[in-house]
Design a protein around this nucleic acid. Sequence first.
DNA 1: CGGTCCCTTGACATTCATCAACGTCGGTGG
DNA 2: CCACCGACGTTGATGAATGTCAAGGGACCG
Lengths: 223, 223
Amino acid sequence: MFEAASSIESTDQNHRSASSPGAAQGPLAALDPIAVKMTCRAGQEIYDPHRPPKYWYRVVTGAVRRCSIQADGRRQILDLLLPGDLLGFASLDGLGYSVEAIEDATLVCYARREVETLLQANPVIAQKMASEALARLERHLLILGRVTAAEKVGAFLLCVSARSPASGDGIVLPVSRYDIADYLAISVETVSRALTELKHRGAIAFAGTRHIKFLDRDAMKVG
Amino acid sequence: MFEAASSIESTDQNHRSASSPGAAQGPLAALDPIAVKMTCRAGQEIYDPHRPPKYWYRVVTGAVRRCSIQADGRRQILDLLLPGDLLGFASLDGLGYSVEAIEDATLVCYARREVETLLQANPVIAQKMASEALARLERHLLILGRVTAAEKVGAFLLCVSARSPASGDGIVLPVSRYDIADYLAISVETVSRALTELKHRGAIAFAGTRHIKFLDRDAMKVG
DNA sequence: CGGTCCCTTGACATTCATCAACGTCGGTGG
DNA sequence: CCACCGACGTTGATGAATGTCAAGGGACCG
């Protein structure tokens, strides 16, 4: 599905440099001096899912997915990471989940050793980061719990919009229809049909397949 | 749906005593001297969801659900807590979710102030607890991502079994069919039909409506 | 008893997954 | 330049799965 058969070793082929890491804004700002920048091509694996990662990551640009491949071959996206989100936290049990860039992405890497030292000094940070990850998963659960596909897609759009920098009353989707389908655990065709249904209902409008404007937010929440 | 219209104040009607809290086994064992025991009747609210809780809780016996009421009146169970599980962690964003005992339950309460002092001294504990909560939510997501209702119910049974103390090759469900339905975001009738389908398929057998024996674990994972 | 949950089953309408076909876009190589 | 190819996106047709409405039985309790 993706151009590069980026294998496990691909991680080491990613471009890392210590020059000018992304803007320091989160609680990890104290670690920015030792942070390392990394760039990823779309579809590339960010770290080897089979061994504990050496770094924590913060997404700066682009989008990242954390997914699990089921026994029947289906792929399920467990988490969608947008700029500002942290990654590498729950890796203890997340072992075996693959983490890939969806679009070309830049990340900032923090050495685990340094992060743990920082957390030792300031444990409130750990709690804040954990609660962010928990909040993402809970929102995901709430979306999956909705009844119809149109509700799920609408809630997904609003959720992504809320997590993106304010851009008027619309969003530019960082993911394909296939990614939406795997995130919502429904088929691609149903995603497409739900989007056209939302359009016909007057809830959204398209300015390009991935550029969506919100016309009636209430109409997006109804099945 | 539940007998006691246990309102917000019901929390203060719960019975608390400092005598012999539940067995100290987790990383919070160091706090057991200051822990307070609490007993809850089935259906009773454990803490007021509208204000930040004063305690952290550990389930000792019984079962607890954390749920969200949707705009359309549906109830969704976001987390199911069994003996040994910790509660009160993600309350920052979980504000507004109700937390109720499913069966009569006993919990151990830890004052937040004391917990935070402990975490200050030993931040690894916080990470361990957070990763447990994240693992529960991820497993929940994986279950919701399954295709057919029979798969979801089967995965739910196996998940509950794995989290319960080993009891041969079966479980005693701590929840009603309605709770399973709200956990899996499907209708009660579908839960019931999925269970009888699993029975007819030879995957499970019943010894009472809530006592289930596993006959063929592989057959439980197939749609 | 009568009431209330809980659980199950049936009948029916709706939604969704699946298979299939087609159009678009961006690259790549003749 | 154009043909080709792959990934993406949409739409249609069809069968399967599920939600909904309805009915009934059983366990428990006042």
